[in-house]
């Protein structure tokens, strides 16, 4: 799919779920280094479950997850973070009662990220000047868009090799949605690999190098993002037009 380039992340035959409930069935996806890979689909299609399973917050039932050629299917979450797999969770989940700066510094808690924390903090503040202005403020007192930037910034502090961005525009005002997408394109320009899950299917597929459409826990369709947007079936079934 991604040609001669080895994928950074490769998921094969993955199933998982919660308790007795199966959510993901035989999922195959890949993410090429330096690319944006989009997961789109309706609510309940399994996007967040897939993100959590890749991050290790939910165990995989069958199948395998390989990262940079290594099998990480059974690795604990903190080991995955230490290899550079960083989840920016749905709902942002900033530490509401801690300051912006404390949130960012906690992002660097993984062993791989403990060196040069101050420099990375400066980089993050340059990328998000708003966070710099508010570095002493409690994270919970900021707007949803600012909290999303903080959640992304906290993820960047972990020195990620792949960023799992789960529903980053959920509940945001249209102008903030635009900003989040601009941030995603900036991150790609800087060489980051991004796996993006979005209910905002059109926007996500338009910027994605490659896209997967999930339905009922299965991959229904996949292809280069802009090509998917142009397919009549996709337009009719998933983009509402």
């Amino acid at each position: 799919m991604s040609g001669p380039i080895e994928p950074l992340l490769a998921v094969k035959g993955l199933s998982s779920g919660y308790g007795p409930v199966t959510i993901l069935r035989e999922i195959d996806i890949e993410a090429a280094p330096g690319s944006v890979t989009a997961l789109v689909g309706a609510n309940g299609a399994g996007k967040t479950t897939l993100m959590k399973t890749i991050a290790g917050l939910i165990p995989a039932w069958t199948g395998e997850i390989r990262f940079d050629g290594q099998d990480i299917t059974r690795a604990a979450t903190h080991h995955r973070v230490d290899q550079g797999i960083v989840l920016v969770p749905e709902g942002r989940m900033v530490f509401a009662l801690l300051s912006v700066e404390q949130n960012l510094r906690l992002g660097a808690i993984a062993p791989r990220a403990r060196k040069n924390v101050s420099e990375r903090l400066e980089d993050t503040f340059r990328r998000f000047p708003r966070l710099h202005e508010r570095k002493g403020q409690l994270a919970g007192s900021m707007s949803g868009g600012e909290q999303q930037m903080l959640a992304i910034g906290r993820g960047l502090m972990a020195k990620p090799r792949i960023i799992l961005l789960d529903e980053p525009t959920l509940g945001l005002a249209p102008i903030m949605v635009k900003q989040v997408f601009a941030v995603i394109e900036d991150l790609r320009k800087d060489g980051y690999t991004i796996l993006l899950s979005e209910q905002n299917s059109r926007l996500a597929l338009e910027i994605a190098d490659y896209g997967y459409i999930l339905e009922n826990g299965r991959v229904q369709l996949s292809g280069p993002g802009p090509e998917l947007v142009d397919m009549p079936d996709v337009r009719r079934l998933y983009l509402g037009r």
Binding site: L57, A76, H78, V86, M93, L106, R154
Partner: peptide, 24 residues
């Protein structure tokens, strides 16, 4: 200590703590 920062992250939001690599 680092232990203390990890514990505070757990107190504030355990799932987020896990996601940023705290061995909760």
């Amino acid at each position: 200590s680092k232990l203390g920062r990890g514990l505070i992250a757990i107190r504030e939001n355990e799932e987020a703590a896990e996601a940023i690599g705290v061995p909760v």
